[in-house]
Design a binder for these strands. Structure first.
Lengths: 93, 93
DNA sequence: CGTCGCACTTGCATTTTGCAAGTGTGACCG
DNA sequence: CGGTCACACTTGCAAAATGCAAGTGCGACG
């Protein structure tokens, strides 16, 4: 499997990169991600579980039943790729 | 829709970026892509149609019922993003 | 005129995604 | 102490995307 295929295996699923992009601005709560991205709640829950398992993000417990999701170093390392893809997308206007 | 979302709308589908990556090495024929990537033939046909419609690649007629697929400028512009994602994928070893 | 390679298409099973509604839990209000 | 609320999910089911296997069309070549 190529390097690109390995990357897509982790962040190639629908919404995954968009979640990571949102977290580049700092930790976010579940409801914030949901409202900002418009992602279906079950998909968001699934993606967050997968990305946590892949070591891309972690859960930070806040108060009682509230937590925030924050990128790990591995997640932050996606910034370059996300910026590059975003620039490409912007050029298609 | 964000720039990233716009990009993923075009190259976010499964196999799409892998096809583009393969074409960064130069034009390829259908059978070559299929064998090199291990992509199901109907998916490959669908992706090639979509990527052509999006202006990412073009068909170059060779002889009779053979053609090659080549990236357009728009397709070549994905190189930076693909390299960045590939590097990230390599770091996860 | 029959066979071959190439580029697909088609039919159907499996998997992923999406929508809508429901669940659990602790804080806060009266 | 009971009721309501916000938040973070889970669940059930329909729709869409993906994958597998087999089939089609069509020039070239013998």
């Amino acid at each position: 499997m190529s390097d690109l295929a390995a990357a897509l295996d982790i962040v190639g699923a629908r919404w995954a990169l968009l979640v990571v992009e949102r977290l580049l601005d700092g930790p976010q709560r579940y409801g914030d991600l949901q409202r900002d991205l418009g992602v279906p709640t079950n998909m968001l829950a699934t993606r967050l579980r997968e990305l946590e398992a892949a070591g891309v993000l972690t859960r930070l417990p806040l108060r009682h039943n509230t937590r925030a999701y924050a990128l790990t170093d591995r997640g932050l390392a996606l910034r370059e790729a996300i910026v590059a893809l975003g620039r490409w997308g912007a050029e298609q206007a």
